[in-house]
Amino acid sequence: MNDQLTEYRIKKAPYYRATGDETELYEAAYSVRMPMMLKGPTGCGKTRFVEYMAYKLGKPLITVACNEDMTASDLVGRFLLDPQGTRWQDGPLTLAARLGAICYLDEVVEARQDTTVVIHPLTDNRRVLPLEKKGELVQAHPDFQLVISYNPGYQSLMKDLKQSTKQRFGALDFNYPDHEIEAEIVSHETGVNKEVADKLVSIAERARNLKGHGLDEGISTRMLVYAGSLINKGVEAKAACRVTLVRPITDDPDMRDALDAAVTTYF
């Protein structure tokens, strides 16, 4: 085992409830090292899925939370000054490519397009990463795979992937699970009983119907887990829902009233 990758190995199996054939499709994609794109709304389980698959495949996982200030150097590496002079430090993408990890770029469209183009040579038959500042061409390790995620419903035309990037990936669509499966996930993750989990999912389903009609995003599975966790700690259900499901997603008084009414309906 490479010592540099030890910290990136997932020690405990993450809980993931499959909703279709996504695990089998991902395993097949990994077997040919196909770069993969995970598309779906925020908080629906994309990151958990990658963690689960990395654990299942026994591969280290290096995750990068992309943002608009991220530069290509943040991904590939840079020269640093130390008492001995200058030294090169690999970025997370280079480390994964060099040593054979799965590299997961979360919400990749948040990064500038001039940053994301550095992944192109890694996502075709070349599987190389040029380190121009260092004058090195890194040949990707046989175990290396690149995975990216983003929320297509949340992107403007200015913040979308170029076709030249998209067409280098296979893609899996994610969405919020069906009611019964989502309730099972909430119950498992929080310890609340099935009845409470059912009510939380019902509130979320109402909110998701308001997306595009006053809400930018619906209530995610992640938020339901937050609510269930507070309820399981003894917080009164309506208060827990206000804190975790209503207040974070809208400041509009009318929308808050509508969501509070949904909470009151079930609790």
Rank of each mutant, 00 (worst) to 15 (best):
N2K: 10
Y8P: 06
D21N: 15
E22Y: 05
E24T: 09
Y26W: 12
A28R: 14
S31D: 10
V32Q: 10
L38C: 06
P41K: 07
G45I: 09
Y55I: 00
L57E: 00
L57N: 04
K59S: 01
D74G: 07
L75D: 07
R78W: 12
L81S: 14
T94F: 03
G100W: 06
I102M: 14
C103W: 01
C103H: 02
D114P: 08
T115N: 03
V118T: 15
H120F: 06
L122I: 01
D124P: 02
R126P: 05
K134G: 06
G135I: 06
G135V: 07
E136M: 07
P142Q: 04
F144A: 04
L146G: 02
I148L: 12
I148W: 04
S149M: 00
L157A: 13
D160R: 15
K162T: 11
S164W: 02
R168W: 07
F174V: 02
D178G: 09
E182Y: 11
E189W: 01
V192N: 03
V192E: 02
K194H: 11
A197S: 13
R208K: 10
L210W: 14
L215Y: 04
S220T: 11
T221K: 12
L224P: 06
I231F: 12
V235D: 06
R242F: 10
V243M: 12
V243P: 00
L245T: 09
T250D: 10
D254M: 13
M255F: 08
D257F: 05
V263W: 06
